Amino acid sequence: MKYLQYFSGISLLLLLTACSTEAPDYQGTWKNTLENPQLENSLVIAKNGDNYFITNTLKDKATGKTEKKNPVPASVGKSGFLQVNAGAGMVDFAIDEKTGNLVGSGSIYKKAKYSFKQ
């Protein structure tokens, strides 16, 4: 009987740890993979406690001028997706495990090896 309880307990622990997957770390600069001849679009995602701030940045390729939109708060939902309230509804972002790219809002973002200066 003790063996049955022991194995039941181990099975329950394994099941609980399998269900509690840790969300990926979304912070960094993510460059939009959609090529635009005039603008370079990136998302700068910064950690803020347990949540994040997302700043959309647009860089004019001709002048080098960078425009930053106001930071928008985001949080990780139960699904592990980074969720942003876009006014009309929630927008989910996720990191594709195969490519490492950030996918969301109809776009694909690749982690940049650089970051915009603050």
Score class of each variant (00 low, 15 high):
residue 104 G to H: 02
residue 95 I to Y: 06
residue 72 V to M: 10
residue 29 T to Q: 03
residue 77 G to V: 10
residue 71 P to D: 15
residue 29 T to N: 02
residue 56 N to F: 12
residue 41 N to Q: 13
residue 65 K to R: 10
residue 60 D to Q: 11
residue 16 L to I: 14
residue 108 I to L: 04
residue 92 D to V: 00
residue 12 L to H: 10
residue 58 L to F: 11
residue 113 K to T: 15
residue 102 L to K: 00
residue 106 G to L: 10
residue 89 G to T: 07
residue 68 K to V: 09
residue 35 E to N: 03
residue 58 L to S: 14
residue 28 G to I: 02
residue 114 Y to T: 06
residue 57 T to S: 13
residue 6 Y to K: 05
residue 25 D to E: 14
residue 7 F to P: 06
residue 42 S to N: 07
residue 18 A to P: 00
residue 52 Y to V: 13
residue 97 E to S: 12
residue 67 E to C: 02
residue 69 K to E: 13
residue 18 A to L: 15
residue 71 P to Q: 12
residue 29 T to R: 02
residue 100 G to W: 08
residue 34 L to K: 09
residue 29 T to G: 02
residue 24 P to L: 04
residue 44 V to N: 08
residue 1 M to W: 10
residue 98 K to R: 06
residue 8 S to C: 11
residue 32 N to C: 11
residue 78 K to R: 14
residue 81 F to E: 05
residue 98 K to D: 09
residue 16 L to R: 07
residue 25 D to Q: 06
residue 75 S to F: 14
residue 47 K to E: 15
residue 46 A to K: 05
residue 42 S to C: 13
residue 54 I to R: 00
residue 100 G to Y: 12
residue 84 V to W: 01
residue 31 K to S: 10
residue 118 Q to D: 09
residue 38 Q to M: 06
residue 76 V to M: 09
residue 36 N to E: 06
residue 97 E to R: 10
residue 32 N to M: 07
residue 2 K to A: 11
residue 61 K to E: 05
residue 49 G to K: 05
residue 22 E to T: 15
residue 88 A to I: 09
residue 22 E to Q: 15
residue 14 L to Y: 14
residue 68 K to Y: 09
residue 106 G to E: 03
residue 6 Y to M: 07
residue 108 I to W: 02
residue 70 N to K: 15
residue 99 T to K: 09
residue 46 A to P: 00
residue 54 I to C: 01
residue 69 K to F: 05
residue 7 F to M: 12
residue 51 N to G: 10
residue 52 Y to M: 06
residue 115 S to D: 10
residue 27 Q to V: 07
residue 39 L to Q: 02
residue 6 Y to N: 08
residue 84 V to I: 09
residue 30 W to S: 00
residue 115 S to Y: 01
residue 20 S to H: 15
residue 30 W to T: 00
residue 60 D to A: 11
residue 85 N to P: 08
residue 87 G to I: 12
residue 39 L to G: 00
residue 54 I to G: 04
residue 82 L to S: 01
residue 17 T to S: 13
